[in-house]
Structures are given as C-alpha cells and as structure tokens.
Simulated scan of single mutants.
Amino acid sequence: MKPILDACCGSRMFWFDKQNPAAVYVDNRVVPHHEYYKNRYVEVAPDIVADFTDLPFGDKTFKLVVFDPPHLKWAGPTSWMALKYGRLEDNWPDMIRDGFNECMRVLDDYGTLIFKWSEVEIPLRKVLKAIDASPLFGHRSGKHNNTHWMAFMKFPIEAEGKPHEA
C-alpha cells in the first residue's frame, strides 16, 4: 500500500505533483474534466471513490494522511464552488468529526495528519470543538488569513499525551 492518503482530494489543488506515486487519492465523487465557465476548468478524478467518513482501508495503513474536507454550507449543489470544493450539509459537525476520526483510524502510530480548514463560513474553533482534538501546530494562510493548515500526530494509546517519551 502507498504511504500517503489524501482522504478528500477534490481536484488536487495544493499538490505540486497531482499524480504523486506515493499517494492514494480518495473522493466521494468523480467530475470529468470540463470547462464550467469560460477558462475555468475542474476535474475530480480520485483513485478510489469513497466517503471520508467510511474509508475502505484497514487500521494503521498510512504514514501520512491529508484531510481537506469541504468547508462550504451555502454553495448550491450544482454551483462552481460546490463542484470545485464539495459542500457541507447541516450535520457538518458530525461529518467533520467522523471524517477526522476515520483519518486517524487509518493513520499508523506516530503518523502525521495534515488538516486544512478554510473558515470562510465556519470558524476553526467550532471545527476543533467538533473533532475534540488539538493540533500540535499550524499555520494561517490565504488572502485573508482564513485558511488553517494544522498538524496532528497519532500516538499509540500507551504513549497518549507523552510525545517526548516515544
């Protein structure tokens, strides 16, 4: 199995190598390459079609998991934004929590989870409350500093809360 999982790859926008041979790309949809608006193209072509809340992998399969879930509630089901980024339903806290937990389940001990969240609608504090976890560190980016990149590490139960004693 490849060591990296992108659990909701979308159009792989932040990947430098969109065909990275070390990564498995998963999304719950396929969007054939097409022009949505003039000069605006989108394509979602996952290796595996699956829901990030129910991944088809065994426990501790990956060394690195990238989790960039949809972050928009207001995007219409057939809008450019929904096509490009996906969309959230009213049960978004459960969906994000279940997705985060599923990403941690498939992450190997001492593996790293990179979680990207754009708080254009939902503040990061509400997302962190929903997942009930705190990142090790993170970084804000974007035009308005509303995109958060956060790193989490999966510690074995016996080392929980003791990262320096690994």
Rank of each mutant, 00 (worst) to 15 (best):
H33L: 12
H34S: 09
H34R: 12
H34L: 05
E35K: 11
E35H: 10
Y37S: 00
Y37W: 10
R40C: 06
R40Q: 09
R40K: 11
R40V: 12
V42T: 11
V42W: 05
E43T: 11
E43Y: 00
P46Y: 08
D47R: 02
D47E: 03
D47L: 11
I48A: 10
V49K: 02
A50E: 01
A50Q: 00
D51P: 04
F52G: 05
F52E: 00
F52V: 04
T53R: 07
T53H: 03
T53N: 00
P56K: 06
G58F: 04
D59Q: 13
K60D: 10
K60W: 06
T61I: 12
T61Q: 15
F62A: 05
K63W: 09
L64H: 14
V65T: 08
V65Q: 08
V65D: 02
V66H: 14
V66E: 09
P69S: 07
P70S: 11
P70Y: 01
H71Y: 15
H71C: 13
L72T: 15
W74G: 14
W74K: 13
W74T: 15
A75M: 13
A75L: 13
A75C: 14
G76R: 14
G76S: 12
T78F: 10
T78L: 12
T78I: 07
W80Y: 14
W80M: 13
W80T: 10
A82G: 11
L83E: 07
K84N: 15
Y85R: 02
Y85K: 03
G86K: 02
G86S: 00
R87Y: 08
R87G: 12
L88M: 03
L88K: 05
E89M: 12
E89S: 14
E89N: 10
E89F: 15
D90M: 06
D90C: 07
N91V: 11
N91I: 11
W92T: 04
W92I: 05
W92S: 06
P93F: 05
P93M: 07
P93K: 06
D94A: 12
M95T: 14
M95D: 03
I96K: 05
I96T: 02
R97V: 07
D98F: 07
D98N: 12
N101R: 15
E102R: 01
E102H: 03
E102P: 02
C103R: 06
C103A: 14
C103M: 09
R105D: 08
V106T: 03
V106E: 00
L107M: 10
L107E: 04
D108Y: 06
